[in-house]
């Protein structure tokens, strides 16, 4: 436990000094990249709540991220620029969508649940594709990031980085509290043995739905941050491959582990970036096109994780494998 704490605080310290170190090293470009990693860390962490703790294999989580992105983007485009309005509204919209999708799909189990969440997410994808007023399939450029007030300039990359970092830690801390509270015990119990959870008196469906909605809301926050970050939203955020990428992040990082989503997002995005932007010369002579096939590298790492670290990257930091559930 204390070793855990030390690693967590070291990670926090590193995250805090990162933008300053990058600036000092004249690598400011990477501050924006780091913010993107943190935003996807929020998205993956929110999926980890349903997938890892709740045991619900949702294959449509991109719908909630994308809805958050579009709702906050549309608000900015329509002149509602305050982040304090836009981001909560985006979370609320994603929560409402999760309530609707969850209410229908949580009646099913196993493969049916996977397919139904996927189908709902694809419906959302086609819906935003057809929203001609907001860019249709081309997406929509935003005039500026959401406004924070209090003298913060969201256009400043370092400021924005800290905002995203704060959001990530808020999500992780809330998740930490939740999984150690009564609610967390129930959703883990449902994951471990659903019929028994019902038989000792828990209304299983209701708890799963609440979990699904909370994760949807957190996914919406990631989407809202994403829209501001790139000053751009487009339908590809809702594409099913994005849902798949989020699942890969969770599996890479550690299913049902607090840091799993964040670690997975970090490993995956850094890896993709390295393969695409920093080709290895000898490999390039061997296979000239390989930087365009970042997925291949991701696939190999995925294979290595499944074979050698089935608990994910987070599992490598923890000796009591399989035991931890909080």
């Amino acid at each position: 436990m204390s070793a855990h704490r030390i690693i967590a605080f070291a990670g926090l310290a590193a995250a805090l000094v990162l933008p300053l170190a990058l600036q000092a090293a004249d690598q400011s470009f990477y501050v924006g990249f780091a913010s993107r990693v943190l935003i996807w860390a929020i998205a993956a962490s929110s999926l980890n709540l349903v997938l890892g703790y709740g045991g619900m294999i949702s294959f449509g989580h991109a719908a909630f991220v994308g809805t958050g992105a579009y709702v906050s983007g549309i608000l900015i485009a329509e002149g509602v620029t305050s982040a304090w309005i836009g981001w909560p509204v985006a979370m609320l919209a994603s929560a409402v969508l999760a309530l609707a999708i969850g209410a229908a799909s949580l009646r099913t189990r196993g493969v049916y649940f996977i397919m139904i969440t996927l189908a709902f997410a694809q419906m959302m994808y086609y819906l935003v594709n057809s929203m001609k007023a907001y860019g249709g399939d081309e997406g929509m450029n935003l005039p500026a990031r959401a406004v924070l007030g209090f003298g913060f300039d969201p256009g400043n990359e370092v400021t924005f980085y800290y905002v995203v970092l704060a959001a990530l830690f808020a999500v992780l801390y809330a998740t930490h509290r939740l999984v150690h509270a009564r609610f967390g015990r129930v959703i883990v119990a449902i994951r471990e043995n659903e019929s028994r959870a019902e038989a000792i008196g828990f209304p299983v469906y209701r708890y799963k739905l609440v979990c699904f909605v909370l994760a949807g809301a957190a996914g919406g926050l990631a989407g809202a941050l994403l829209a501001s970050h790139g000053k751009y939203v487009n339908p590809s955020v809702l594409h099913w491959t994005q849902s798949g990428t989020l699942m890969i992040m969770v599996i890479l990082g550690g299913v049902g582990r607090l840091w799993g989503g964040a670690l997975g997002a970090g490993v995956l995005l850094v890896l993709e970036h390295l393969i695409a932007e920093h080709p290895i010369p000898w490999l390039l002579t061997l296979a000239p096109d390989y930087p365009q096939h970042a997925n291949l590298g991701v696939g190999l790492v995925m294979l290595a994780i499944v074979l050698y670290a089935p608990q994910g990257v987070a599992g490598l930091f923890s000796r009591k494998t399989g035991k931890e559930h909080g």
Binding site: A174, R177, R185, G201, H325
Partner: peptide, 26 residues
């Protein structure tokens, strides 16, 4: 994967009030 005590505590929890509690450590 839960201990005997955790198993039983869950069943006790199910009969003692709402479990829609998200913040207080169990």
């Amino acid at each position: 994967r839960l201990s005997v005590l955790e198993n039983l505590a869950l069943a006790v929890q199910a009969r003692s009030g709402s479990s829609l509690s998200f913040w207080r450590p169990v």
